[in-house]
Simulated assay, not measured.
Amino acid sequence: MSNKLLVLQSDFGLVDGAVAAMTGVALQEDPTLIVHNLTHEITPYNIFEASYRLFQTVEYWPEGTTFVSVVDPGVGSARKSVVALTNKGQYIVTPDNGTLSFIKKHIGIKAVREISEVANRRNNTELSYTFHGRDVYAFTGAKLASNHITFAEVGPKLAVEDIIELPVVETVIEENFVRGAVDILDVRFGSLWTSITRDEFYSLKPVFGERFEITIYNNDMLVYQNQVVYGKSFADVRIGQPIIYINSLYRVGLAINQGSFAKAYNVGVGSNWHIEIRKMA
Rank of each mutant, 00 (worst) to 15 (best):
L8Q: 08
D11M: 08
D11I: 09
V19R: 03
V19N: 04
A20D: 12
M22A: 09
Q28F: 05
D30P: 00
V35N: 09
N37K: 05
H40C: 04
E41P: 00
E41M: 08
T43C: 01
T43M: 02
Y45I: 12
N46R: 01
E49L: 03
S51P: 09
R53I: 06
P62C: 07
P62E: 13
F67W: 11
G74P: 14
V75P: 07
V75G: 10
V75C: 05
G76S: 04
A78D: 15
R79Q: 02
N87Y: 07
Y91V: 07
I92W: 10
P95R: 07
D96L: 03
N97G: 07
L100N: 02
K104N: 09
K105F: 00
K105W: 00
G108M: 05
I109P: 13
K110A: 11
E117K: 13
V118D: 15
V118G: 15
N120T: 04
R122N: 07
E126F: 15
S128G: 01
Y129F: 15
Y129S: 13
T130M: 06
F131V: 08
F131M: 10
R134Q: 15
Y137I: 01
F139I: 06
T140Q: 11
T140L: 09
T150A: 10
E153L: 08
L158E: 08
L158I: 11
A159S: 14
V160K: 07
E161T: 14
E165A: 07
E165K: 12
P167A: 11
V169S: 14
V182P: 04
V182K: 04
L185W: 06
L185S: 06
T194I: 06
S195Q: 03
I196A: 04
Y202V: 03
K205W: 05
K205D: 14
F208Y: 14
I214R: 09
T215E: 12
N218A: 10
N218T: 01
L222Q: 03
N226V: 03
V237W: 04
V237P: 08
P242V: 05
I244C: 01
L249Y: 13
V252S: 05
A255W: 02
A255C: 01
I256F: 02
N257L: 07
G259K: 05
F261I: 10
F261H: 03
F261Q: 11
F261C: 10
A262Q: 12
K263I: 02
Y265Q: 04
G268C: 08
V269P: 02
S271W: 01
N272R: 14
I275M: 01
I275G: 02
R278Q: 13
M280S: 14
